[in-house]
Every structure is written in structure tokens, then in C-alpha cells.
Design a protein around this nucleic acid. Sequence first.
DNA 1: GATGCTATTTTGACACTGTCAAGATGTGTT
DNA 2: AACACATCTTGACAGTGTCAAAATAGCATC
Lengths: 206, 206
Amino acid sequence: MNSAANLKVVRPGYHHGDLRQALLMAAKALIAEAGIENLSLRKLADRAGVSRTAPYHHFTDKNDLLCAIAAQGFRRRYQGAQDTFNDPSLTAEEKFAEFICGYVRFAADNPEEYELMFGRNIWKQKNSTQELRDVAYPCFQHQLEMITSWQEAGLISGDNPLRTTQVIWGTVHGIAKLLIDGIYTDSAQIEEVSLCAIKLFIKKAS
Amino acid sequence: MNSAANLKVVRPGYHHGDLRQALLMAAKALIAEAGIENLSLRKLADRAGVSRTAPYHHFTDKNDLLCAIAAQGFRRRYQGAQDTFNDPSLTAEEKFAEFICGYVRFAADNPEEYELMFGRNIWKQKNSTQELRDVAYPCFQHQLEMITSWQEAGLISGDNPLRTTQVIWGTVHGIAKLLIDGIYTDSAQIEEVSLCAIKLFIKKAS
DNA sequence: GATGCTATTTTGACACTGTCAAGATGTGTT
DNA sequence: AACACATCTTGACAGTGTCAAAATAGCATC
């Protein structure tokens, strides 16, 4: 038995090589070019140089494909958040500020990916894949842990860690959404809005 | 010349009566039944008892129709917010609390309508109708005025009224979005989350 | 009242979408 | 070499938004 036989990844040498990965790459490119709503499986297959229905052997559904892309986004975001939280050269306040600003910046820099990660199409009803949930929930959990630690350290206001996390997450998510959905027209102010949010949540020393 | 000739409304006695209104009603019914993403103009026309392309003489576009529904939502929300703000029997703190809770409740009670009002499909690029902008912008402006007044009265923290408004709006929008998009699974906690947000924003007297 | 103008509605058509069923083709194993 | 299986293709279907042209109904004017 081959060494990589029990893994589903890295299986080159087939008809196309590794079509699953190629499809994901092409999909991200197409989305970056024309937005999610303009992504069709047929255009995607065309871009990848295969037939219309070829993707269906690697993704059960269009939704399945979108979930896979969203999962990549969660992994990236989780990595970034964890890196700053574990950076020993930063104070707790700096970490909190970077969490807020970094969150909003992530959404602003990858609007289509963020839209996918938190779009209603994926989460409403039972559309989310097991893979997506497996990577998204730890991401949510990590946010709770970080905010809990900052609250216990007396850095930010409030008493109930879960509720506070839900509010702060709501804040950054809402700011991000208003921006990338085109309701805040002015993206130049977005850093200032993040800074204002930080000031509002940090417990005043005076 | 007829008395109502210079108005575009209330023109009964035509083929259908007032199809524009009937289409709006039917659209809201269909959306309530199966969600926005399951609304098609053909099903809508069928529900209204007309041909597939009949709606195109009352709405230039599917987007135009959705904007009209969204505009109705903004009018309702604006009315509600204004009523509580002008209620003389409430204290400033009660008004602020009701603004937060009322906002989230509005979204929770009318998820599909809220999704439409703030969906990216409408606001991204130049898709928003003039009518929609004419009713939505005063709504945003009103929020700024209310929050400015509460901030000047020393009720809530922060110094820059515009930034504070953007943060607080982001917070309620984010909480609403996380709920109605199915990411917060537990809708029973939503009132508690709103209350936590209120506590975080209100300036502590101690 | 007949005629013509215009608002309204319909039928037909087109390009596009997601997805299924069957067949064809390549790849690895026995 | 033969088989099993993964992979890919072709064909098809129902559905979508929207345009063009034809049909119909209401109103105003002569």
C-alpha cells in the first residue's frame, strides 16, 4: 500500500493532476475578479480547463466548494489571530487593539472571502460542511478565550465573558460588514472606527 | 385633467388594478415563506396572476423591486426609532436602551427584510435606487443625531460622535447579522447580548 | 361615437445557471 | 491481461433574468 494512500491529498499524476486544488485556486481567482455572485461552476470548470460537470467529482455541490474556500479563510484568520495573541513582545492592550484592527483589516483586505465565510448562504439551514464547522468553531472559541483573558486581566469592561465576546465580535463583524457591503462608503475611515471601538471597550483607569 | 393624473399612485381600474402594489405584497409573502434567495420574478408573477414579464413595466429590474421592498423596511424602522426617541415619558437612558434592543429586535423579527435592507446585492456598486437612498440616508442620519445627543448629555462614552455612531451602529448591525445569518445559533440569548452591549457603552457613574 | 395614442400585458426567445444520468477514458491492483 | 475504480465528458432538464415584438385595454380628442 502506498504511503499516501490513506490520505485524500496530494494525488498527482491523474488526468488533470490535482483538480480539486486547481479548482479552489481558480475559484478564488474568479471570485477576486468578479465577486462571489458572479461565480458559476461552469465558468470555473472552463477556467480550469475541464468539462462542466468535472467539479462534481471533487465537490458534492456548489455549496460544498464554497464551504471549502471559506474553510481556508477561517484557517488563515485563525492563524493570524493566534500569532498576535502568542506574541510575547506585545502587551495585553496591544494584543487587544491588534485583534480589533486585525479583524476589520482582514475583512477589508479579503472582502469576498469574508463574505463567503460569514454569508447566510452557508450558515443558514444546514448548508455548512462538517469540514467548515470543524475549522470555524475553534476559531470562535479562540475569540472567546482571548477576550475572557483580557477581561479577567481587567483590561476591558463587563463581567460576563461570553456576552462580552458576543458583543465585541458583533462590533467588529458589523463594522466589517457595513464596510464590505458598501454601506460605509468611506473605507479610509475604517482604521479610525476600529480605534474608536477599542477606546470604547477598554476599561478606563481614571 | 383628472385630479390624480399628476400622481403615480392609486390608479385603479386598469387591467389588474394596481399591480405594482400587488407585486410588492406578493413578493413580501413569498420572501416570508421561502426566503429572499428563493424569490424569482416568475414565481412572483405567477402568484400575482400575471405573465412572467408583466412586472417589468412596474420595476425596471429585479433589483429595482428588491430596493422598493427594502425602502419600505427603512420607512418602518425609521418610524419606530423616531417614535421612541420623541417619547416624552422615557429617560435618555431608556431611549438608548430601547434603540439598541429595538434595532436588534427589528432584525430578529424581520430577518428577510433586514437582509434585503442591508444586503450587499443592493448597496454594492451602484445597485441602490434613488428612492432607496432617499429613505435610507435620513435613517442613518437620524441614528447619528440620536447618538450625538446622548453623548453630549454624558450618557455614553467617547468623544467623537460620528465615530461613536459608526461603532454602535456596527455593534447592533453585527449582532443582528450574526443572529439572522445563522451564526449565533441561540436566538434566546439575543436580548441578553443587547443588554450587555448597552452596559458596555453607557458611561459609568462610579 | 369612432379614432388614435399610450400604458399595460402577453408570447416567444435567448443566454445562462446548477445538477443529474449515462457513457467514455484513464489509472492502479490482482 | 483483466478487472475495479476513479475520473472526466456529453447530453439533458428545469429553472432563472431579461429583451423584442405583438396583442390588448383605457383614455383623450376629433
